[in-house]
Nucleic acid binder design. Sequence first.
DNA 1: TCGCTAAGTCATCACTTGTTTACATCGACT
DNA 2: AGTCGATGTAAACAAGTGATGACTTAGCGA
Lengths: 208, 208
Amino acid sequence: MHAPPHAVDADATTGKSRDAANTRRLLLSSARRRFAQDGYSATRVRDIAADAGVNVALINRYFSSKEGLFEACLAHARDELGRSDGSSATLDDLVEALTRQVAGPANGDRSLQLLLLLRSSGDETADAIRLNTLRYFADQMAVAAGRSVEDVSSDDLRLRAQIALSTMLGIALLRASSTGLEPLASTGVDGLEGPLRDVITALLAPRL
Amino acid sequence: MHAPPHAVDADATTGKSRDAANTRRLLLSSARRRFAQDGYSATRVRDIAADAGVNVALINRYFSSKEGLFEACLAHARDELGRSDGSSATLDDLVEALTRQVAGPANGDRSLQLLLLLRSSGDETADAIRLNTLRYFADQMAVAAGRSVEDVSSDDLRLRAQIALSTMLGIALLRASSTGLEPLASTGVDGLEGPLRDVITALLAPRL
DNA sequence: TCGCTAAGTCATCACTTGTTTACATCGACT
DNA sequence: AGTCGATGTAAACAAGTGATGACTTAGCGA
């Protein structure tokens, strides 16, 4: 087994040497997928550890508990989602960004983040992050609708943005649902962008 | 305590006497709520039994297993959902029916049926019922869009109907989500019908 | 009233869950 | 070498989980 002495490997996926930060990343990645796809209580910590190729006890070492790991996933999703939609200034940009978010490419991680926002453990802290992210996300969509600022604070626009968000989440959920609902499940970005534009325009476009 | 000999009570909610059909109903009702709100694996059979005011073992007696009870809930939801939307012949009728479905009144049962379609146990039979109901529901919406029959079979219309369904499911989910997302969570039928009409019209209205 | 059957109860099983504990191993520093 | 803290491993624990089978009770006709 003679481990290579030049253990500056630090490869993210195949790193064999002892690298705490790396195993943390591995655990987070596996956990995110499991939590998003199967829900909180349906995922077992042993499965997460197995996916990461790591011992179960390390979950508790690095994240204190299953709930701690879930919160970490949620926080990660919040940061990543908060970063991605800041660039969409117009409605068209928003549609394109959201379509990519829900239907890939690089589908591996994107849509999982959305799913995560629908999964609930019983934990208050996690649910707070979840609700906060959802609210922020919807408000960002309202802003991108290009209305005036006082419009954004109106409950009617908020409601409409949250309904648009509901659509995104519903699609993400149905696409990920164990048994795929066709044609929705296997429609790509190209096929999804049209209808999605119709929805978001109908909900958020300024009234003429 | 001398139990009244004329035990023809058989009241659905307060029935104390031994009534198999009634306890079955009670179990189904409690289970539907639990499964819909908390998901499959997060609900414990003991909680269901406690809600129904019934002994835990009766779940296995009447439904063979926890999964059997879940399948029964799903089948019940399928029948009830299949019955409710047959009446909507026009797009406006559809919007009104769906709005009621997701936002009450008599919210107690309606939206739970929708939520149930998003909850998955690992069971194949249950998932089959679930997928089947979703497909049927979306197709019904396409039919109500008032297009010609050959249009309904087109994948584009199917996709659009499924996206509309996604919106309904997403809303139901966000409204039921443990911590409510305002204003969506507490908006009634009146406030929801407008935006919902916009969405469904944008998705399903025949192109001019 | 007796006795049978359906309906419900109780104790307990086998198993899974998240978590913890005790131990082994690596890498670095003196 | 030898020590030490960080990292990882394996085994076990305690609390629950769904399920089961033997027992008790209610209802009802003979």
